[in-house]
Simulated assay, not measured.
Amino acid sequence: MNRLNKIVAITSIALFMSACSSSPKPTWYKQGVTPTVTADKLGFCRTDVNAENLSEAHAKKMIAYCMKADGYKFGIKPRN
């Protein structure tokens, strides 16, 4: 195999491997709402439930109630 073929093969393998490892992470989302507005709402919920004074598990549960009450979902945002 000549040098150019090796470079092409290595590049192809690297691109394939990087595509496999970049799966989206679950997040809060609401149809038609920007990520900035969602981040603001999440911050409001953290403050509203006084999350810094709760255990981590209880804070997550209370924040989830707050977000869901406003119509948000937690998961992989579907592509439009």
Rank of each mutant, 00 (worst) to 15 (best):
F44Y: 15
P24C: 07
Q31V: 12
S22N: 13
L42R: 04
T27D: 11
K60L: 11
S18I: 07
W28L: 05
P26C: 06
V33Q: 03
D48I: 00
C45T: 00
T27I: 10
F44C: 05
K41P: 01
A64H: 02
T38S: 04
Y29K: 02
R46S: 05
L54N: 00
V37K: 14
T38Q: 02
A19T: 07
P26V: 04
C45S: 02
V49H: 02
S18K: 10
T27H: 11
C45E: 00
T47E: 12
P24S: 12
T38D: 01
T36L: 14
L42Q: 07
T34C: 02
M62D: 05
Y29L: 04
S55N: 05
S18Y: 07
P35W: 06
N53V: 09
A64P: 04
R46W: 01
I63T: 02
E52K: 10
M62P: 02
N53P: 03
I63L: 01
A39F: 02
T36C: 03
K25P: 02
F44T: 06
D48Q: 13
A59Y: 00
A19E: 06
C20S: 08
A57R: 09
T27C: 10
P24T: 06
T27K: 15
S22G: 08
N53A: 13
A39I: 01
P24F: 08
V49W: 02
N53C: 03
W28T: 07
H58D: 13
N50Q: 07
M62A: 13
P26I: 05
I63E: 01
P35M: 04
T38H: 01
T47C: 09
Q31K: 15
S21Y: 11
N50S: 11
K61R: 14
Y29P: 03
K41N: 09
T47G: 15
E52G: 04
K41S: 06
E52F: 06
E52S: 10
K25D: 09
Q31T: 14
P26M: 05
V37T: 15
V37L: 11
K41Q: 13
A57L: 11
T36W: 11
P24M: 10
A57H: 04
A57M: 08
F44L: 14
F44W: 13
S22Q: 08
V37G: 01
R46A: 10
S18M: 12
K25V: 08
V33M: 06
L42N: 07
N53K: 12
P35L: 07
A19W: 10
Q31A: 13
M62S: 12
